[in-house]
C-alpha cells in the first residue's frame, strides 16, 4: 500500500472518531447543564471551560470569543469554521481524506461520509442545531456509527483496514483520557480548592463514552477509582484506554508482520511498553501519581506512538536521505496553480 494512502486512511479514521467524540462530549455536557438550571451565567461558563481546555484550543477560543458563554462554546466546538477542530471541520477533513483515497474505500463508505459532510453544511443542520440540538448530535453519532458499520462489513481486512483501526483507536484512547481529564479543570469550589467531581460528573463522563450500562454491570462505584478502573483499565470495554492500546499494538504488529510481545521498530517498542503499563497498572497507581499528571502522561505517549507510526511506515527515514517530498506539501500559489493544470 502506498505510504501516502496509508497515512490518509489513518487520518480519515481519526477525524471521524474525533467528530464522534466531540459530539458525545457536548451532548452529555448539555444534559448535565439541564440538571443545573439554577447556575448563574458565570458558573455556566465555568462548566464549559474544561471542555475547551481538554481539547487544547483555549487560545483560539479566547481570541474569537473573549467571554465564555455556553452557546459560544457549543458553536465553537460544533460548526465554527474558524476552529479546525470543530465537529464540522473534522468531518470536512475526514471527507476530504476520503475523497483523496476514494479508490481505496468502498462506495458505501464514501457515500456515508459524503452524506454526513453534506448534512453538516445543510440548512437542516443549522436549523436542528438551533432548535433541537440533541437531534443534531444524534444525527452525527448515528452517521458515524453507520460509517463504522459499513466499514466493518465492506472493507477488506488488509493493510488499509489496519491503518484505519490504528487511527480510530489512538484517537479514541486519547479522547477517553480527555473526558476523564475534564475533572481536573473543574471550577473553584469556593474554598480555594478544586471542586471535587461528584456522581453527576462521573455519570456525565461515562455517558459521553456510552459506558453507563456497562459500568453499572461491572459494579463499580461512581467515584474516581471506579471510573478509572473502568475507562482506563477495563480489559474488554471498547472505549477503555487499555482496550484501545491493545488494538493499537495489535495493528502495528499486523502491519509490520512481526509477532506480538516483541518489537522490530520503535513504534512497536513504545506501544508494547505502554500496553504493559496498562496491563499491570491499576487505578490506585494512577491516583497516587495524581489524575491529571497521569492522564497527561498517557496523552504524551499516544502522541509519540502517532509520530512513530508516521516515521516508521510513511517516512521510512532509513530508506531516504531527503524527506522533502513526503512531508505535507505546502499549498502555496505555485503548487495550487500547477495542480489546477487544465485537463483537455
Amino acid at each position: 500500500m502506498l505510504s501516502r494512502v496509508a497515512n490518509t486512511l489513518y487520518w480519515m479514521a481519526r477525524y471521524v472518531e474525533r467528530a464522534d467524540n466531540l459530539a458525545r462530549l457536548i451532548d452529555v455536557n448539555r444534559h448535565l447543564l439541564l440538571d443545573n438550571e439554577t447556575l448563574g451565567s458565570d458558573r455556566i461558563a465555568d462548566f464549559w471551560r474544561p471542555i475547551i481546555l481538554c481539547t487544547g484550543d483555549e487560545e483560539l477560543f479566547q481570541s474569537i470569543y473573549p467571554e465564555t458563554h455556553g452557546e459560544d462554546v457549543i458553536r465553537f466546538l460544533t460548526d465554527d469554521p474558524r476552529n479546525v477542530s470543530s465537529i464540522a471541520s473534522c468531518i470536512a477533513q475526514a471527507r476530504e481524506s476520503a475523497r483523496t483515497v476514494r479508490d481505496q474505500i468502498s462506495d458505501e463508505m464514501w457515500e456515508e461520509i459524503n452524506a454526513l459532510h453534506l448534512f453538516v453544511r445543510s440548512d437542516e443542520a443549522a436549523y436542528l442545531l438551533k432548535e433541537a440540538p440533541p437531534r443534531y448530535y444524534e444525527r452525527i453519532r448515528r452517521s458515524v456509527a453507520t460509517f463504522l458499520g459499513i466499514s466493518a462489513t465492506s472493507h477488506t481486512r488488509d493493510e488499509g483496514w489496519e491503518f484505519m483501526q490504528l487511527g480510530r483507536h489512538l484517537e479514541r484512547a486519547d479522547k477517553t483520557t480527555r473526558f476523564l481529564d475534564t475533572t481536573s479543570y473543574l471550577p473553584d469550589d469556593g474554598q480555594g480548592g478544586i471542586g471535587a467531581p461528584g456522581m453527576l460528573h462521573w455519570t456525565a463522563i461515562l455517558g459521553s463514552c456510552g459506558a453507563l450500562g456497562a459500568f453499572r454491570a461491572a459494579h463499580h462505584r461512581f467515584d474516581v477509582e471506579g471510573a478509572l478502573s473502568f475507562l482506563v483499565f477495563s480489559r474488554n470495554f471498547p472505549r477503555s484506554v487499555r482496550y484501545c492500546a491493545d488494538r493499537v499494538d495489535e495493528c502495528i504488529h499486523l502491519i509490520s508482520g512481526s509477532p506480538r510481545g516483541g518489537f522490530l521498530n520503535e513504534a512497536e517498542r513504545v506501544s508494547g511498553r505502554l500496553l504493559a503499563d496498562l496491563n499491570y497498572g491499576n487505578a490506585q497507581d494512577a491516583m497516587a501519581l495524581g489524575l491529571h499528571p497521569y492522564l497527561d502522561g498517557l496523552q504524551e505517549r499516544f502522541n509519540r506512538i502517532g509520530e512513530l507510526i508516521f516515521e516508521t511506515f510513511v517516512l521510512m527515514p532509513e530508506m531516504f536521505e531527503s524527506q522533502r517530498s513526503m512531508q505535507q506539501r505546502g499549498h502555496d500559489a505555485l503548487t495550487a496553480w500547477q495542480e489546477q493544470q487544465q485537463q483537455q
Binding site: R4, R99, T100, Q340, Q343
Partner: peptide, 24 residues
C-alpha cells in the same frame, strides 16, 4: 496532479474501476 485538480474525481474513479493505484 493531486486532489485539487478539477478532474481528480475522474482520476480516482478510473483508478478504482481499473483496480490500480492512484499516485502523486
Amino acid at each position: 496532479p493531486g486532489c485539487h485538480n478539477s478532474a481528480y474525481f475522474e482520476h480516482c474513479y478510473l483508478a478504482r474501476e481499473m483496480g490500480i493505484e492512484i499516485v502523486e
